[in-house]
């Protein structure tokens, strides 16, 4: 019984380390428990039993930025909140990603005024923008799936 025979029975898959790491990362994202306005209600229902975000490897929202690697900016960011948001982002360990959920987080939405940041891309780098006011849970899940695709393709070098 040679080893070749045995390996032949089991089948061997070769891949690159990069792909393996990307696959592992993309299926165990821990989002941060961070809701800012009405969009957060949809984010909650996305996690709840009806839409059940854990089907996609996001079992639990972490209440601490230090334990999470995805920030879903759910809602409008007021100018006073902007430094706090940036601070939370800086506290997240790398690798980390950001989803701008809803029109307000993406571009200011209906609040084109002095009080609201016109899109969180003024303060943090955004990976996926999810449109809608508020986006339905399906839309958010679609955004998350797109982020997973993106993470799978990401080179390791990016987070060195």
């Amino acid at each position: 019984m040679g080893i070749e025979q045995k390996l032949g029975d089991m089948g061997v898959v070769t891949t690159t380390l990069e792909k393996a790491v990307g696959w592992a990362r993309s299926n165990a994202i821990w989002p941060m428990l961070f809701g800012l306005a009405c969009c957060a209600i949809e984010m909650m229902s996305t996690q709840a039993s009806r839409y059940d975000l854990s089907r996609f490897g996001m079992e639990l929202m972490r209440a601490s930025p230090r334990q999470s690697d995805l920030m879903i900016v759910a809602g409008r960011v007021s100018r006073k909140m902007a430094p706090v948001l940036r601070n939370l982002y800086d506290q997240m360990p790398e690798p980390k990603w950001v989803i701008a959920m809803g029109d307000c987080a993406s571009c200011g939405g209906v609040f084109n005024n002095y009080a609201v940041v016109q899109g969180v891309d003024e303060i943090v780098p955004v990976d996926v923008y999810v449109a809608g006011c508020p986006p339905r849970p399906e839309t958010l899940i679609d955004g998350i799936l797109r982020l997973q695709e993106k993470i799978k393709k990401e080179p390791l070098k990016k987070w060195q």
Partner: peptide, 8 residues
Amino acid sequence: AGKIFAGE
């Protein structure tokens, strides 16, 4: 152009 992280 005014948003540092836009279009990344």
